[in-house]
């Protein structure tokens, strides 16, 4: 069966087509969609694309970052103002994958993929959905919660730019320099008078999709980043997680090593 490819100059038109065409699937970088097409996935009858310039736009001000959902990992790596995100973008595949893979596509990538999405969750990002009748903004957390329900088009992603040294990221793999996640941890760790104030920690590959480490966040509040002080957070690090058993690692192993890597991150690893 051949597939219809429909390319739209405006995101709103692409969003309408996505909701009205039979068997429509949005194509961004295609690193996952084209796999499915090559395997003749029967649910895909139409590929919807957009050449809207806003889809690949990058706007960075002192306080805020706004990224078109079609921005690639390579484009992030080419933007000096986004240096804090370079370790995250570099963690996604090899150079040829990074040229194509988009940040929007990463929000839909099944576990153990989704490294960039975990970073965006730690950054408290919001997602803008394009529809035929206008746009709608919602938190990434809410978006991930309903990800599997509908075929909405993500047009852009925005977040507050973290202060220097506040954002950290680590990805644990078996193969170096490139491998799929055993797990990934992204964190914003703001300090007030040497103590953690309002931490935000997200895990990749610790569930079907990126998730917050809410118990660890609560246990860190008001504590200095020192070995004894972080022990209670490490004890609850795996609370609320439901990692997969897959070819990369067992769920048991992921839970076992999570506190070890969270400890390293809290004590200074993963700064960009």
């Amino acid at each position: 069966m051949t597939i219809a490819v429909k390319t739209f100059a405006r995101l709103a038109e692409a969003a309408s087509a996505l909701s009205t065409e039979r068997g429509a699937r949005f194509l961004a970088g295609g690193t996952l969609v084209m796999r499915a097409v090559n395997e003749a996935e029967p649910s895909i009858e139409t590929l919807v694309r957009s050449t809207d310039p806003s889809f690949v736009g990058i706007a960075v001000t002192s306080g805020r970052v706004e990224l078109g959902a079609g921005v690639t990992m390579a484009a992030i790596l080419g933007e000096r103002e986004l240096a804090f995100l370079h370790p995250v973008a570099r963690a996604v595949g090899g150079p040829a994958v990074r040229e194509a893979a988009t940040i929007g596509g990463n929000l839909f990538a099944p576990s153990p993929y989704g490294d960039f999405a975990s970073a965006l969750l730690a950054l408290d990002a919001t997602v803008t959905l394009a529809g035929g009748y206008g746009q709608r903004e919602l938190s990434l957390e809410e978006f991930l919660g309903r990800r599997e329900r509908g075929a909405s088009l993500v047009s852009s992603i925005a977040f507050k730019r973290p202060a220097n040294e506040v954002f950290r990221f680590t990805k644990v793999t078996r193969v170096h320099p490139k491998g799929l996640s055993v797990l990934a941890i992204a964190a914003q760790l703001p300090l007030a008078n040497g103590r953690i104030a309002g931490p935000r920690i997200a895990y990749g590959a610790m569930g079907r999709m990126p998730l917050r480490a809410k118990a660890a966040e609560r246990a860190l509040e008001g504590r200095p980043l020192e070995d004894n002080a972080i022990a209670p957070a490490l004890a609850v690090a795996a609370d609320g997680t439901s990692p997969l058993d897959d070819a990369i690692a067992s769920a048991w192993w992921r839970r076992e090593i999570l506190p070890i890597h969270l400890r390293r991150l809290l004590l200074g690893a993963g700064r960009s």
Binding site: G30, T31, M34, N38, E99
Partner: peptide, 10 residues
């Protein structure tokens, strides 16, 4: 000029 995986490129 940039590397791409032709099998997953439309």
């Amino acid at each position: 000029g940039m590397p791409r995986l032709s099998c997953v490129t439309l």
